[in-house]
Amino acid sequence: MNTPRDVLTPAALAMLQVIADSGSFAAAARASNMVPSALTYRVRQIEEALDVLLFDRSSRQAQLTAAGMELLREGNSLLEEIDAIANRVKRVATGWEPQFTIAVDSIIDRTTIMELCEQFFQMNPPTRLKLRAETLSGTLEALTSGQADLAIGVVMDSNTKTGLQREHLGTVDFAFAVAPHHPLATAAEPLSDKVIRQYRAVAIADSVKQGASMSIGLLTGQDVFTVADMSAKLEAQVRGLGAGFLPTCLANPCIDSGKLVVRKVERALQQVQSSYAWRQSSKAMQGRALQWWLDQLQAPVTRAALLGVRRQRHL
């Protein structure tokens, strides 16, 4: 017995549409240059495979049943998707990747990323774009594990795996900040580790799945409130739920408005070298989506904007 996969071919769906448009099997057979018995037999094959009636045969007119109308609705969508796939395949043959995945660290400015995505889609490429939200070591892991084609906002050191290419994105400065009503807002400066340890820290959960996770500015024995990303960390500290280091590019608006207070600490100020990275290959072997993104990231104004530094000139 035929299965639905055997009978639901593009040609069969087109034939059912002709019957529905013609209003009768005889008229559809003439329009399709078929004998009526052959057309009727093909329709019965489809109905048997689906175990439904597609047409009401109680009158001379071939009227669709509810099941038949649903099949044609979904069938038309399927035919449109087949056409779309064929067009994408043709365009992928020109060098575009079928899908391009970017791991975006939580320190990266989301507005800038979306502006870049908007520019990318304006080219109407055949590439499907996917963004992954990652944090700390998880951003690099997404790239090294093959789950991403490009990682933006990674922190890399000399022990980082080979086989990757990277470029410097910028230096991220951190400031120790608390809400005005937090006890550390009025404590004597510079704040010692002993004093800071008495109060809860707000930390971001490293999204790394395997290997050692990374942390910035945490003290041994300190109570920790762990949140999902940098935006949540900022909000938690504005609410006074804890203290900790924040990237100045993200915290400055809250500092300027008085929602956060910067406090001097005894330990050295935090700085992180942020990069973007991709798997090593010759330029000739790079897909056109990767080439486009790397070209955009070459612009100093784009790099600055990705780290939350907005200038007069826009992307």
Rank of each mutant, 00 (worst) to 15 (best):
D21V: 05
N33T: 10
R5A: 15
S32W: 01
Q17A: 14
A38P: 02
S22R: 15
S32G: 05
V35D: 12
S32E: 14
A27E: 11
R42P: 04
A27S: 13
L16M: 10
R44W: 15
L8Y: 02
I46D: 01
D6A: 11
M34R: 12
R30D: 13
V35E: 12
A20S: 00
Q45W: 05
P36L: 10
L8R: 08
V18C: 02
A20E: 00
L13H: 09
S24G: 04
L13G: 06
P10E: 02
S24F: 03
A11M: 08
S32Y: 00
A38S: 14
S22N: 09
R30M: 03
L8A: 05
A26K: 13
Y41D: 07
R42D: 03
L16D: 01
V43G: 02
A38V: 10
A11D: 14
R30Y: 04
Q17T: 12
I46S: 07
V43M: 11
V18P: 00
L16C: 07
A12P: 05
A11G: 07
P10C: 02
A27V: 06
P36E: 12
Q17K: 15
A26C: 08
S37A: 14
V18D: 01
A26E: 13
N33M: 09
R42N: 06
F25C: 05
A26L: 11
S37V: 11
L16Q: 04
G23R: 09
V35Y: 11
S37P: 02
M15K: 09
T40D: 07
T40F: 13
T40I: 13
Q17Y: 11
P36A: 03
I46F: 06
T40N: 12
A31F: 01
T40A: 13
A29R: 01
S24L: 05
A20G: 00
T9C: 05
P36S: 10
A27G: 14
A26T: 13
G23T: 00
V18G: 01
D21S: 11
M15T: 13
F25V: 12
M34F: 14
V18F: 03
S37Y: 13
A20T: 02
M34D: 14
I19P: 00
A27W: 04
D21M: 07
Q45A: 14
L39S: 05
I19F: 08
R30H: 06
G23H: 06
Y41E: 10
L13M: 11
L8N: 03
N33W: 11
A31D: 07
V35R: 15
S24W: 06
S24C: 02
R30C: 02
S37T: 10
Y41R: 15
A28G: 09
P10N: 03
A31K: 12
A38E: 05
D21P: 01
L13T: 11
P36G: 04
A29F: 06
A38N: 10
S24I: 00
T9Y: 13
V18L: 06
L8Q: 00
A28Q: 05
M15V: 13
A29V: 03
A26P: 10
A31M: 09
A12K: 05
L39F: 05
